[in-house]
């Protein structure tokens, strides 16, 4: 892209994955998508004659603070692909579906961690993308606050998390031009609220009892590739 004029494009992607027991077979598909993600995105970009000069991926796997204690939140640093592909693969393969307690999950806390990632400032152009997969709605923020490992600096409410992301015309902690949020989850609860208020977002509604269709994964890839 713009090679004659020397512009460089750096892309960071934070994959936020529901790792609770209910994810079961869906998690295997999400992991499989995550592992083929670099190759698939590269192929999409090549088909559009676009290139990314630096791609980094971070993984956050979440469960419930109250039910799962120290296993509630797995947080990785950003890994550069393809250079750190083996570490990335080991990380993703290590995510196992378990725990979760009741139906809702502590997914808003995971989103909070994702928003506060150390996003790249490199490159002439940048894209900061959060992709979240979940089969259920989030708990209220702070539902797991009684857990000893609950993060002290987490947003105190959905309103505060909304401020972190930023609504249309308002700032947030991420660069408003660079950020994108793609969510694969049921169109209910806070996911529905997010779509109504947060800017630069797309929701791919999941249907109860149905897995992650190939067309949805393809649409997520398209959404990322077309935004670059």
């Amino acid at each position: 892209m713009g090679s004659n004029y020397g512009s460089t494009y750096h892309v960071d992607i934070c994959m936020v994955i529901d790792a609770t027991g209910s994810m079961g077979p869906l998690l295997n598909l999400v992991k499989s998508n995550a592992l083929s993600f670099y190759g698939d995105l590269k192929a999409r970009m090549a088909a559009k004659d676009k290139q990314v000069d630096k791609l980094r991926v971070r993984v956050i796997a979440f469960r419930d603070y109250l039910a799962d204690g120290k296993d509630a939140m797995l947080l990785s640093d950003f890994l550069e692909l393809p250079e750190q592909a083996p570490e990335f693969e080991a990380l993703v393969r290590g995510i196992q579906p378990k725990g979760g307690g009741d139906d809702p999950e502590d997914s808003l806390e995971a989103l909070g961690y994702a928003i506060k990632s150390k996003w790249t400032r490199g490159g002439d152009k940048r894209r900061h993308v959060i992709v979240l997969w979940s089969d259920d709605v989030p708990h209220d923020l702070g539902f797991g606050r009684a857990a000893p490992n609950y993060p002290s600096r987490m947003a105190k409410s959905f309103d505060e998390l909304t401020e972190w992301w930023g609504a249309t015309g308002l700032g947030g902690v991420m660069n408003p031009n660079d950020k994108r949020l793609l969510i694969y989850a049921p169109n209910k609860g806070y996911w529905n609220d997010i779509m109504g208020v947060w800017d630069n977002t797309l929701l791919f509604p999941s249907e109860a009892g149905k897995g992650l269709e190939e067309t949805t994964y393809s649409a997520i890839l398209d959404a990322i590739a077309n935004s670059i």
Partner: peptide, 9 residues
Amino acid sequence: SGSKLLGSM
């Protein structure tokens, strides 16, 4: 194929 998508984008 993208008609089910929701959100500000």
